[in-house]
Design a protein around this nucleic acid. Structure first.
Length: 218
DNA sequence: ACATTAAGTGATT
DNA sequence: AATCACTTAATGT
């Protein structure tokens, strides 16, 4: 079967609502189908980008690596998504700052980067798609940052409490929320709220001036 | 009983 | 996560 016919059909069920007809037609002509098996890399850090992937089906995990090589998952690409970050990269011929791994078996349509610019000029739906994509990615990032920041405080409090228990060799601590806030350079209200959560998780039992650790392993 | 201090909450930034 | 403004609960005198 003709390559463009196959692509057209693949494109249809996820992108027909998104793109105008002419754009679908053009993509089916210039794109090529790329199948990636679960666990395989789509793109690695420092790799030069040669095409933009439009995800047809499957899920791609986008991750970042820290200095130690620890992975931090940034976000997921699902059908109908593309890696908008890669647009800036490919326009300026930069290398990827992310790694994309197939979380499941993935089918994607690759669009050569030299054509991405042209599509941007020619098709409104393509422009909207890219801008929306950026927006979604940004919102996901904000969420990730929020939760990281929050978890950090919770972790700090937990460390602080277990440390105190270890020092005093006593499960019962005599501290006010304000004390903890001062020690951790935070504010009382924030501590109160996180302690309440820990309380609800049955990790501590806290009353006025007191915090009792219910979970404490060496 | 009243004042003081600790803790809880909702809204806002 | 921090700040504000305000409420509620516990404690000391």
């Amino acid at each position: 079967m003709d390559n463009s016919i196959i692509l057209k059909r693949k494109l249809h069920h996820t992108y027909s609502e998104l793109f105008e007809k002419e754009l679908l037609q053009e993509i089916s002509e210039v794109g090529y189908l790329r199948k990636v098996e679960k666990g395989q890399l789509l793109v690695d850090i420092d790799e030069e980008l040669t095409h933009i992937p439009l995800i047809i089906n499957g899920v791609v995990k986008i991750i970042r690596k820290d200095h130690n090589g620890c992975e931090l998952s940034i976000y997921y690409l699902e059908p109908g998504d593309t890696c908008s970050i890669s647009f800036a990269n490919c326009i300026h011929r930069k290398k990827s700052i992310f790694r994309g791994i197939a979380e499941t078996n993935v089918e994607a349509i690759g669009i050569p980067i030299n054509l991405v610019d042209q599509l941007l000029v020619k098709y409104q739906s393509w422009r909207h798609y890219i801008i929306d994509s950026y927006h979604c990615r940004l919102m996901e990032m904000v969420e990730t940052i929020d939760s990281l920041a929050f978890m950090k405080m919770k972790a700090r409090i937990w460390k602080y409490l277990t440390c105190k228990v270890k020092i005093s060799n006593n499960i019962d601590l005599e501290v006010t929320h304000q004390d903890i806030a001062d020690d951790l350079n935070s504010t009382r209200v924030v501590i109160t709220r996180i302690l309440k959560k820990l309380h609800e998780e049955n990790k501590i039992y806290s009353t006025r001036n007191k915090v009792k650790l219910l979970e404490f392993y060496e």
